[in-house]
Design a protein around this nucleic acid. Structure first.
Lengths: 146, 146
DNA sequence: ATTGATGCTTGAGATCGTCAAGCAACTCGC
DNA sequence: GCGAGTTGCTTGACGATCTCAAGCATCAAT
């Protein structure tokens, strides 16, 4: 019994599997972050900073209150992983930028997600392409609304 | 322009997409839980209670300290969604059981994950089967180790 | 220039999460 | 039995996360 494991899964089964994998990946991420003294949320915020992002924008990305972002950025800034710089166009806005050390540390966190990497290694190129295509199809439904 | 979106995605791209979908689904779950006055963690714990589970087991399932579970169960118990009952075989152990109301509320939370449901609706049966198969292949790598 | 909206911070209060310590109960060897 | 070590749960202390209400500075628009 190796091939015929799937005679059309229930929507509930699929949902459960997706949830389980999502959780597992999050644990993997959190563990990698912790090894560098970061909480999951701090690492997640850091991961958003490809360029300068205003506090408000971070709140939107993390789907949380703006006042919450203040504290998280405070702690990251205290560790020198992030910098607040005034936006030239609007003096109310503070843009958050990752320092070099900040970029480096999040790069390492991503690289050290061993469980996730080894999971993806189980698939060959063709399978990854198929998976990517299917997940892309899921995105519009999930990304919008809540 | 519908077919040729994927000339073999990078592992990094795939990783990012998986992370994004995982996050979106979690938000969906958290929002549904919040509508019933539950935090995400409370809902997640409730979701594990198909049968009686000892505190220790819940700590393992939620991947957190046992002392943390005490508080979460306290709050759920105060709302009558959960019950602690002594294990007959070992008087140290307390088994946590969902009450009828507890089962009902988590059933509703699952049913109200609109974003997730509509996302899965974008796939037909054949696609779901393929997706399920691919995700199944990912499981062993993710589930074990961290 | 006043009115209103927007961006960020602060403070209070709840939840979540860890660690260390403690108590009760089980297990094992003798 | 019976004491030593282990295990299951709770408690207390403390930090991080999260929300809400309030406040201040700045922008936008009449």
């Amino acid at each position: 019994m190796t091939g015929t494991t799937s005679p059309t899964p229930t929507k509930a089964q699929l949902l459960e599997l997706v949830a389980a994998l999502g959780t597992a990946q999050w644990q993997d991420f959190a563990a990698a972050a912790a090894r560098h003294g970061l909480t999951s949320v701090q690492a997640k915020l850091l991961a958003q900073l490809k360029g300068p992002v205003p506090m408000r924008g971070l709140a939107a990305l993390l789907v949380c209150d703006a006042s919450n972002v203040t504290g998280i950025v405070d702690r990251l800034e205290a560790r020198g992983l992030v910098r607040r710089e005034p936006a030239p166009t609007d003096r109310r806005v503070k843009n958050v930028v990752a320092t070099d050390e900040g970029h480096e540390i999040i790069r390492r966190v991503r690289a050290e997600m061993q469980a996730t990497h080894s999971a993806l290694d189980a698939l060959d190129e063709a399978e990854r392409t198929v998976l990517y295509g299917l997940l892309e199809r899921l995105r519009p439904g999930l990304e919008h609304r809540a």
